[in-house]
Structures are given as structure tokens and as C-alpha cells.
Amino acid sequence: MTAEQEERVLRRIERARRRKARMRDERITLAHGAGGKATQTLIEAVFLEAFDNPMLAPLEDQAVCPAGGARLAFTTDSYVVSPLFFPGGDIGDLAVNGTVNDLAVSGARPLYLSAGFILEEGFPVVELTRIAGSMARAARAAGVRIVTGDTKVVERGKADGLYVTTAGVGVLEHRFVLGAGQARPGDAVLVSGPVGDHGTTVMLARGDLGIESGLTSDTAALTPLVAALLDACGDGVRCLRDATRGGVATVLNEIARASEAAVVLEEAAVPVRAEVRGAAELLGIDPLYIACEGRMVVVVAAERADAALSALRAHPLGERAAVIGRMAPDPARLVLARTEFGGTRIVDVLIGDPLPRIC
């Protein structure tokens, strides 16, 4: 492809991305819950259209809400992972850590959670007790309290065992403004550790592939990593995102879109465990799209990149942190990956998720 042809393709992609989202599907599919393009369309064409307001419009993982003289971060999430128990965690600690992380990446100190349970008739009480204990331990480790909740029971066969919904509130104790729209050309892009551990672990735990592995989920609260990063880099931190559904690739696209800039990714710099890479190759999946539950993407001013890397690597959760790319002015709103073979490819958002029900 010539440079002129490539430019035409990029312009066509840009025009398509700027069109107002329209919901063309008549019924909801699994793709609409996978965190990719179908999810984005559903959110923008249905929910944002109905609920549009200044706190919702940025479409961050949480809303920042004024409350008197304070600023609060507020988030909610639902968990439908299958299986409920997997190496390294279960639906309980996943629900706590996921909500804590959505608060933490806004720079907030998480404080309180709610927990809602939809139980299926016949669900074993011993398993529910185990999950509740897991949630309690995760909450203590993250420094939060579960202070309210709700329980519903539905008929046998109507809830796949158990679904959990958690919401969380935290307080912002600094004046930094973090968000995908704050990234700018020249900034460094980092990831806090190996990508794809959680999604691959859950996939292997289903047993469909008959592969045994020592891999475990990376589910963990990111609060200490965020605190260390803000202490080290201050207002040099532009954006933090935990890379859950859709993986690092989807997060990078969200940052490029919100910032009106490009992300240029060095493919060889992205840390990926051998087990994850092997499973991904077997299934024909790019590890960049596989969900994490204890990793975050970080965008910092270029001059703070070394300080950010040192702060992350000083904590066990971030010991394999890496600089994986940079923000660039062009091509706006796109993510490009420089491959190990010297080429360049566009890293787009997938329609759905090749690994559904991983969170």
C-alpha cells in the first residue's frame, strides 16, 4: 500500500469513527456486553442518549461528583464470570477489586462499597459463604468496607448460579485532573505488568481446551500502585485505566479517541507471559485484547516516564511494568503498533470479545 492509499484509508476510518452511534441491532447479543465496538454503540446510542449529563458524558470508568466542598468518585459494575471459581480468585474478590480499581484509577481513595446478589434457587450455601468470605478479605486488603447491599433469588436455571453487582464511592484528595482526554502528543504510555493473565486463566479454567497451566488471575486492588504513582509524578500523570474487558487494546483506543491523538505502540515492549502467549496463539487471539483484572494503562508526561516506571516497579504488583509506547499527533484517534518485523498495523477495537463471561 502506498503512502497516499494509506492516508485515504486512515481518513475513511476517521470519518466512520466520528459518526454518531446508531443502534442497528434489534436484539441484544453477547457482543453488546463484551466491551468492544458493540458495547460502545449500545452505551452511546441507548444509554448516553437517554441519560446524557456532564458527569456521564466523559464515559470514564467512574463519575466525579461534587459534594459540598469535596469531590467524590462513584462507580458501579456487575459480575457474571464463568466459572465462579478460578485459579487466583473467584467472583467475590473480582467484584471487590474491580470496583475498587475503577475508583482508584480516577485518583480517588476508595471508601465504601455496596454489594447486590442475584442468587439462583438451589445455589449451594457453602459456595455462597466461600464467596462472601473472599469479598470480605478483598475489602480488608483494599481498605474499604462493604456497607450496604441487596439480595434477590430467582427460579432455578434463571441466573447461572450467582451474579454480583457492586458499587463504590471514594474521595479525591488532590486537585489533579485525570482522564483519557488529558493525554497529549509526546506523553509516554506504560502498562503496570504482564497483560492477559485474567482472561486466559478463566478461559483455561473452563476446561474446554484440556490445557493445564500454573497461570493464575491477576485480580488485585490497584490502590497502592496508584498512590505510589501520584506521589512520584504528581500532575505529570495524565490518565490511568484498568485494562479489563477488551484488554489493553480497547483502553488505548479509548484514550486515543478521547484525546484526539494517536497511540504508537511498540509491540515487542508489551509484557506477556509465555503461558498467555501460547494460549492466545492456539486460539488465534491477540494478547492485547485479553482482559486483565490487576493491571492498568498509564499515560504520563514524557519527562516523568522514568519516575513512573520506578514507582510502579517498586511494588510487587508493578515489578514487570514497562513503557510500551507514546502518544503522537497523527493519525488522530487511532492506535498503531510497530511490529517485531518492522511493519506497522492498526490496533482497532473488536466488535465483541473472543472470551465472553470473564468478569
Rank of each mutant, 00 (worst) to 15 (best):
E6C: 09
R12F: 08
A16K: 04
R19W: 03
R22P: 01
M23A: 09
I28T: 09
I28V: 15
H32Y: 14
G35M: 13
G35Q: 14
G36T: 12
K37F: 14
A45L: 11
A45Y: 08
F47R: 08
F47I: 11
A50M: 05
A50T: 10
P54T: 00
P54Y: 10
P54A: 01
D61E: 13
V64K: 01
L72W: 07
A73D: 07
F74I: 15
D77H: 15
P87Q: 14
G88A: 01
L94C: 03
A95N: 07
G98T: 04
T99K: 08
V100E: 10
N101A: 08
D102E: 13
A104C: 13
V105M: 14
S106Q: 12
G107K: 00
R109V: 15
L113M: 15
A115Y: 15
I118A: 14
E120C: 02
P124L: 11
L128T: 08
I131A: 07
R137K: 00
R140D: 15
A141M: 03
G143A: 05
T148M: 12
G149L: 09
G149W: 00
D150C: 04
R156I: 12
A159D: 11
A159T: 06
D160R: 11
T166K: 00
V169A: 09
G170T: 02
F176E: 09
V177P: 13
V177W: 09
G181P: 08
G181Q: 14
A183Q: 13
V189E: 11
D197P: 01
D197R: 03
T200Q: 01
L209C: 06
S213T: 09
D218N: 04
D218G: 01
A228I: 12
L230P: 03
R245N: 13
V248K: 00
V248T: 02
E254L: 09
A256T: 01
A262M: 00
E266C: 08
V270C: 04
G278W: 03
G278I: 04
G278T: 15
E281Q: 15
I285K: 01
D286Y: 03
P287C: 07
P287S: 10
E293L: 13
E293C: 03
M296G: 00
M296D: 04
V297G: 01
V299P: 00
A302M: 06
D306P: 07
G318Y: 08
E319R: 13
R320D: 06
R320V: 11
I324T: 12
G325R: 05
M327G: 01
A328K: 08
D330P: 07
P331T: 10
A337C: 11
F341T: 14
G342S: 07
T344I: 11
R345I: 13
V347A: 09
G352T: 08
R357A: 15
I358R: 14
